[in-house]
Simulated scan of single mutants.
Amino acid sequence: MPLAKLYLTDLRTRMRGLKTLGEGAMQQLGDNDWHTALAEEGNSAAVLVQHLSGNMHSRWAALRSGYREGQDGESAGRNRDAEFEERTLSAPELWTLWNAGWAAFLDAIDHLSPADLMRPLTIRGEAHTVLEACQRQVAHYSGHVYQLILLTKTLRGTGWQTLSVARGQSAAFNAAMFSKEERQKPT
Rank of each mutant, 00 (worst) to 15 (best):
L8Y: 04
N43D: 13
P92M: 00
E23D: 11
R59L: 00
M177Q: 14
E132K: 12
E74H: 08
G30T: 04
N79H: 14
G66Y: 07
F84K: 09
D107S: 15
A82F: 06
L163E: 14
R78W: 11
V49A: 02
R136W: 05
G157A: 03
R80S: 09
R78G: 01
V130F: 08
G30M: 04
T20S: 14
P186L: 06
G17I: 06
L148N: 05
Q147E: 11
A61N: 07
G77D: 12
Q71G: 01
K180T: 07
A82W: 07
G24N: 05
S113R: 14
E132M: 12
T9K: 13
L121C: 02
E74L: 13
K153E: 00
L106A: 04
E41C: 13
T88C: 06
G54W: 03
G42P: 12
G70H: 04
L6S: 13
G73S: 09
A82C: 03
L131P: 15
S75E: 10
R124K: 13
A100F: 01
T129Y: 09
G66R: 06
A46K: 03
A127F: 06
L29C: 14
D110Q: 07
T158M: 05
A100Q: 14
H35P: 03
R167A: 12
S58L: 01
L163A: 10
M56K: 07
L151E: 11
S65Y: 02
P186C: 02
Q71V: 14
E41W: 09
T154P: 10
R156M: 00
Q169G: 08
K185P: 07
A45Q: 06
H128M: 11
S75K: 09
L112M: 15
L117A: 11
E41H: 15
W98I: 01
V47R: 09
A171S: 15
R119L: 13
D33N: 05
D107H: 07
L131I: 05
L106H: 07
A45G: 08
C134T: 12
G159C: 02
G70P: 10
L6D: 15
N43Q: 11
A166T: 10
E85G: 02
T96H: 06
P2R: 03
L131W: 09
G54T: 08
M56L: 10
M15V: 03
T96D: 08
H128C: 10
L63G: 04
Y141P: 01
T129V: 01
L89M: 08
E85L: 07
S75V: 07
Q184Y: 08
F173R: 15
A61H: 10
A166L: 12
D81A: 15
L151N: 12
K185H: 11
L21G: 02
M1G: 15
T152Q: 06
N79D: 15
W95V: 01
R183W: 05
L11E: 11
W102G: 00
A176E: 15
L106T: 09
E132T: 13
S58D: 04
L18I: 00
Q27D: 11
A45F: 02
M118H: 11
L97C: 06
Q50N: 12
A100N: 13
G24V: 00
L52M: 14
F173H: 14
Q71M: 07
D81V: 05
Q137V: 05
A171E: 15
T13Y: 05
P120F: 08
H57A: 00
Q137R: 13
A61C: 05
K5D: 13
L38V: 11
